[in-house]
Design a protein around this nucleic acid. Structure first.
Lengths: 182, 182
DNA sequence: CAATGCATGTAATGAGTTACATGATTCC
DNA sequence: GGAATCATGTAACTCATTACATGCATTG
């Protein structure tokens, strides 16, 4: 069983989903394309970690709603208790930042400005998501046994990451300007 | 040409390296195993983006010291100016955090404590690295045109990332404790 | 009337990891 | 005497992306 499989189980523990929904939801912590997700769901179903019901729709394509089984849940439970392996971060921007002196100041500034803008949009979205959760579930979000807790702390983390990257970008931009003007 | 290739060129712009060194240096922004790096260096050499000199050693295995060519440098320069694609972050810990309520409080606490410890070690290392740079190169580190600038801003970013993750872990742990004690 | 969303799937290719292979030196 | 460091390479495998394939409904 690979990590993507556990990511799917983790999502399904909160609520039953279609493969299509999972593809979108997963993006927050494990980006994967549908071409990887659909076959894996089939495999998880064969191994009885999940089940699905076929739902016919009119106007839209039919869908399969997947749910986690007890077997799947206990597998996930065991996996969670093990120490996680080191994160993999592959960010082109860091490579470009590392060699930023190879470009002119204008290009460098543009790259960092673009990055800030991308994150500002995400922050806006993230904040409304967190607001929604708080309005809908109130104090529950901050209670560790609540079904909403995991989602809440993850979103807070994502928000923090985006805010901090902006701070760093601004710091770098200040250094870029200092040298080009002074 | 794939991103790993540009990562290698980015490293070689600063100074000539062996494949062995690159494997270690790369870890800071693009983790890759030597089995991926050696064949790619051969390919880069065939396409004349890098050259190497064979250096015989006694007591140690012989080595190949790779340098970037003008062709490689201009390729990298062009690539840097393009908007980077979205970062890929795959972190098992986030999946586990998302479903943390499936474990008991003790296990949850242990996972977050372990994470804090891992980062504390990295922070220590990161800080000494930054200190070294500052002592060796002084103000140069903060000058955008300096050869040390990219490395400096990258290390600062890494330090920030680690410090912020610890903050988040502590925040989550406080929530875990509040619920289990109160 | 073109693009986007909903919804699922497979095939081909590229990227990345694990394992196999070698061998002297130094450190504990 | 076993592990770690230096140093390079290939083979087998798994993981992930891109492309191919379909089709109706809604939105601009």
């Amino acid at each position: 069983m690979n990590t993507l499989g556990y990511a799917l189980l983790g999502m399904l523990v909160r609520k039953p989903c279609t493969g299509y929904e999972l593809t979108q939801l997963l993006e927050v912590f494990w980006q994967a394309k549908h071409s990887q997700i659909y076959p894996l769901l089939t495999k998880l179903e064969q191994e009885e970690y999940v089940t699905f019901v076929h739902v016919e729709q009119t106007g839209k394509p039919d869908k399969k709603i997947y749910s986690i089984t007890d077997k799947g849940k206990s597998l996930l439970q065991q996996w969670i208790a093990n120490s996680p392996s080191a994160p993999v971060i592959r960010d082109e921007f860091l490579i470009k930042a590392y060699s930023i002196r190879l470009t002119d100041v204008a290009t460098a500034k543009r790259l960092f400005e673009e990055r800030i803008q991308i994150h500002e949009k995400k922050i806006e979205y993230r904040k409304t998501e967190i607001e929604k959760m708080k309005q809908e579930f109130g104090d529950e979000t901050e209670i560790a046994t609540s079904i909403h807790f995991g989602r809440y702390i993850l979103f807070q983390r994502k928000l923090q990451l985006e805010e901090e990257e902006i701070k760093w970008c601004r710091w770098v931009m200040a250094l870029l300007l200092k040298n080009s003007v002074g």
